[in-house]
């Protein structure tokens, strides 16, 4: 079974997981994900590949502890094993030499944006990185990202009241200030949909990394259906990257909430069992 090399808390609620997975490390490309299951009773969940080391044969993901599965992952220690760590899944992101690329990320997306920014930079683009954090102390991987970025912008919500228009406002400011040729956004659904709305008037191609609920991650079940440009797509094999201006966001929001009550029940049951 795949062995955990490192699991550490980066900032409150956000953890890094590095796992020995030589085949995945050899093959993975920016924008791909793995399916992880924390233990034999666990659920299969997708996590974006945030970094890899082809020589050591390890793959790194960064995740936010939100429910049972991610809470279980947050308790792993180096040397533990996980029953499933499968991938690399999904189509790699389209990387090209397009000019100026704005890479925007929030919560786990701050890490997930890293391989994209790195690849866009390597492809000769000017790369602006915009990260969204609720408070300054929730920022991580600043060094890694600053080392890549031509410009690094932090959007923090400290000391601001009312409205939730933080990231989109920064996006609009950047678009007003300079010509941007491509935008990529990774993070929670809200972050991605609001950025897509912010860039819609300008028509700049805005790629988002969709995060519907998944089961197998290989195109076998259709749990991950999303509607893009009026057509049903399976995010795990047709995506996860799609043109944000064509995504049916309302449907995605609804489908992500499919199991809301069950998720709470599952977490309560697990907490009661583990912390009686």
């Amino acid at each position: 079974m795949p062995r955990v090399v490192r699991r550490e808390r980066l900032v409150p609620n956000i953890h890094l997981l590095e796992v020995e997975a030589p085949e995945i490390a050899r093959k993975c490309l920016p924008g791909q994900f793995v399916i992880v299951m924390p233990d034999a009773h666990g659920e299969r969940i997708p996590l974006t590949i945030a970094d890899w080391d082809r020589e050591r044969g390890t793959v790194t993901s960064v995740f936010m502890a939100v429910g049972t599965t991610t809470r279980k992952l947050a308790l792993l220690k180096a040397g533990d094993t996980v029953p499933i760590f499968a991938g690399p899944l999904g189509r790699p992101s389209e990387i090209g030499s397009v000019g100026t690329v704005l890479c925007a990320g929030g919560c786990f997306g701050i890490a997930a944006i890293h391989p994209l920014a790195r690849a866009f930079k390597a492809a000769g683009n000017r790369v602006v990185i915009l990260v969204d954090v609720k408070a300054d102390y929730l920022l991580y991987w600043r060094d890694k990202l600053e080392a890549i970025a031509d410009e690094f912008v932090v959007s923090s919500r400290d000391g601001l009241y009312g409205g939730t228009d933080f990231v989109p406002r920064h996006v609009r400011d950047i678009l007003a200030r300079e010509k941007v040729d491509r935008i990529v956004a990774v993070g929670c659904t809200y972050l991605m949909s609001s950025i897509a709305e912010a860039t819609r008037p300008s028509g700049v191609r805005t790629m988002v990394c969709l995060n519907p609920i998944m089961v197998d991650g290989t195109g076998m079940c259709g749990a991950c259906r999303v509607t893009v440009d009026g057509q049903t797509k399976f995010a795990c094999v047709d995506g996860p990257d799609f043109d944000g201006h064509l995504v049916d966001w309302a449907e995605l929001y609804a489908r992500r909430k499919s199991y809301f009550d069950d998720e709470v029940r599952s977490l309560c049951a697990w907490e009661e069992e583990r912390f009686p």
Partner: peptide
């Protein structure tokens, strides 16, 4: 694509492979 509409593959996979019939002992 409404919530509550499944493919048979997803429905059966959740129940059989992931053992959703024994939720919340199993997480799916």
């Amino acid at each position: 694509n409404l919530v509550g509409v499944y493919s048979a593959n997803e429905y059966l996979t959740r129940v059989n492979l992931m053992r959703a019939y024994d939720f919340p002992r199993y997480d799916t």
